[in-house]
Amino acid sequence: MTDPSSSQPRSGAQAVERALAVLRCVEATDSGAGITDLAQRAGLTVSTTHRLARTLADAGLLVQDPGTERYQLGPALVVLGRKAERRLGYRQALPLLEELAAATGESINLGIRAGNEVRVVLDVESRQPLRFNQESGSRVPMHVSAMGKCLLAAGADIDAQITGLGDLVRATHRTITDRDQLRAELELVRDRGWALNDEERNPGVRAIAAPVRLPGGGVAGAIAIQGPTVRITDDRLPELADLLAKTTGRVAVLLAAPPETT
């Protein structure tokens, strides 16, 4: 394999982009990845990938298993993540999500926008035997996510938001793949203040979400309640929407507060 840009002058931005590509490839696998696999996934040469992986490992962002020689995410990311969690207000918000999980009996997520996906930054798992949970760090396409619909609807220009998504890939028979239908859905989300994912990503799973609107304007993310369709029924939606509105309001204050200095 040859780097598409190997014959072009390197820039600092290109180096960062390549390093991030390697990190994302490692993030995407639970069992770690070897250099050849990483090179194929990132679209880089083996020599470039090896150099980047060693640099990232020296910084603690990756770690290499001496037995398998596969790379995993490193301990420095744990430290950075905990600092970010505290300074961005996520740590303080977690108890409020736990309260919401206890009140509803369902799994709870706080997600933020990451390109054309929603990245889950906090999760609280339901204690019900039959449940649906989405772990922190996971990513979901915007158009098949209740949180994603909230974040799309918060944009100034809905048409531009939809165009930027590219192809609306179908996940289930209920996935919205028609742009006009998605536009109508997002306008409804704007009007009523919450979004519904009605088995659009996973059969048998429903989610209701509301945006976290910052006091000074803007949206910091969205919070979702998710569970099986047998429990998240139409008659429960008004109650769940009300609980979401109260929780998102309290979380917004925390996310807008100055970061902790201790």
Results as ranks from 00 to 15, higher is better:
151 L>T: 02
176 I>N: 01
125 E>H: 13
135 E>N: 11
172 T>I: 12
137 G>E: 06
189 V>W: 02
82 R>Y: 07
129 P>W: 08
124 V>C: 06
132 F>D: 00
194 W>A: 04
74 G>W: 09
79 V>R: 15
191 D>T: 15
115 G>F: 04
131 R>M: 15
79 V>G: 05
83 K>W: 08
144 V>R: 00
146 A>H: 01
67 G>Y: 11
143 H>V: 01
108 I>S: 05
191 D>F: 07
79 V>E: 11
107 S>F: 10
174 R>S: 08
65 D>T: 12
106 E>M: 11
182 L>Q: 06
143 H>R: 06
108 I>H: 03
135 E>K: 12
120 V>F: 05
169 V>W: 04
116 N>V: 07
88 L>V: 10
107 S>T: 14
196 L>F: 10
167 D>T: 14
171 A>D: 01
191 D>N: 14
113 R>F: 07
187 E>I: 05
132 F>I: 12
78 V>M: 06
180 D>V: 11
153 A>V: 03
175 T>H: 09
119 R>V: 04
100 L>W: 10
71 Y>F: 15
67 G>S: 09
137 G>N: 07
142 M>P: 00
107 S>C: 12
149 K>N: 00
108 I>W: 02
91 R>K: 13
121 V>A: 03
91 R>W: 00
130 L>E: 14
196 L>N: 00
89 G>K: 05
85 E>D: 14
97 L>I: 11
174 R>D: 07
174 R>H: 15
69 E>A: 14
192 R>C: 14
76 A>T: 09
87 R>N: 07
159 D>C: 06
175 T>F: 05
78 V>E: 11
70 R>P: 03
160 A>V: 11
117 E>G: 02
105 G>N: 14
179 R>Q: 10
116 N>R: 11
79 V>L: 12
167 D>R: 11
185 E>S: 13
146 A>Q: 04
